[in-house]
Design a protein around this nucleic acid. Structure first.
Lengths: 186, 186
DNA sequence: TTGACCAGTAAACAAGCGTCTACTAACTTC
DNA sequence: GAAGTTAGTAGACGCTTGTTTACTGGTCAA
């Protein structure tokens, strides 16, 4: 009993970061407590502030380590609507499809990190998507698509997986593709 | 000094309810504290629990007093997409277009009221909208439209009014109408 | 006028939060 | 092997939260 713990600065830091990423993704910023993170990471609470400064800075680092809307936008232009549709369909089907956006959606109500969230949404989705669209309404079109994506996340969280007695997957994707085409069409 | 307050049970109750509705709408469930409500209502904190039981029950009563997606769905079927588009356009333009959904969107992350929110979204938007659509995919189509509506609310809250250098209002509504048509089309 | 009732009040309650300080003990360096 | 550095720990700090208790004092029927 009373095992002596190894001293491993880098490892402990990473455990904390991983635990924070997992919990923020599942629960959102203000539902996650420092003690919850420390328990999940099996590390002392004080170490979180020692290594990351504050809860807010830890959250910022979690955001920074996320890829930017991973891979979804990296397809030829004509496949973009279907690619987005597949992404949203996946988010509607499984409760926890993509950790990238989940933390953002569930944390938007907390004014403490309002700026962090906004910057992240801009740089991860809104701007790269708008950059791929021609014409002066690109930003607005990208915003509509982003609204659909985040809204799907919200509904998915609210109702759980497979809540809408969805038809087969291909029908779902076909419908969503049509909607995204309407968003992105010049 | 030390004005003696009138005894007015019904009036005080209504002041609290109005203050709660305003604050929940602006800030969301967990950003609103009992003391904030009591200050806004100019009533003692203890009276809130006396009249409503708990914060949660007060929130439930605020939800119950809201009309169900006021008037938006009460148009002929062919005007429905444009009507929804106008609604979303209004939400994107002014930060606080509709108080009905705002509280819901900003409160979805709080598990304490998860059930309340879900029931409210179902009865206020999802089900009445689905009821107006034909075919076996009505629920799913309504869900996509709902996702767009709530997502627009989230983005509006995140970026503030007029954030997307939107074209003129008519163009915005035309684009959104096309998207909703893609959602609702058989 | 008196006494029951009850709207309104102030203060405290326990629990939870993020953060910080004082300390222990394991490594490293000379 | 002694000294210094530092990872890890335990616990308290100050604050905020929703909720509750004990009390004050108007109101109104008898």
């Amino acid at each position: 009993m009373d095992e002596v713990r190894q001293r491993d600065r880098a490892g402990t830091r990473r455990r904390i970061l991983d635990a924070a990423r997992k919990l923020f993704t599942e629960l959102g910023y203000d539902q996650v407590t420092m003690r919850l993170i420390s328990a999940e990471a099996d590390a002392n609470v004080a170490l979180i502030n020692r290594y990351f400064g504050s809860k807010r800075e830890l959250f910022a680092e979690v955001l920074a380590m996320q890829g930017r809307f991973p891979g979804v936008l990296d397809v030829p232009e004509e496949e973009l609507p279907r690619r987005l549709a597949e992404y949203v369909a996946e988010r509607l089907r499984s409760e926890q499809a993509s950790p990238v956006m989940a933390a953002l959606i569930r944390s938007a109500s907390c004014s403490e990190i309002h700026g962090l969230i906004r910057d992240r949404v801009s740089s991860a989705i809104l701007e790269p998507l708008a950059a791929r669209l021609p014409g002066p309404e690109a930003i607005f079109q990208a915003a509509v698509a982003t609204a659909l994506i985040t809204g799907a996340g919200t509904l998915s969280q609210l109702y759980g997986p497979d809540a809408f007695d969805a038809p087969d997957r291909e029908t779902v994707i076909r419908r969503l593709t049509a909607v995204f085409e309407a968003c992105l069409r010049a």
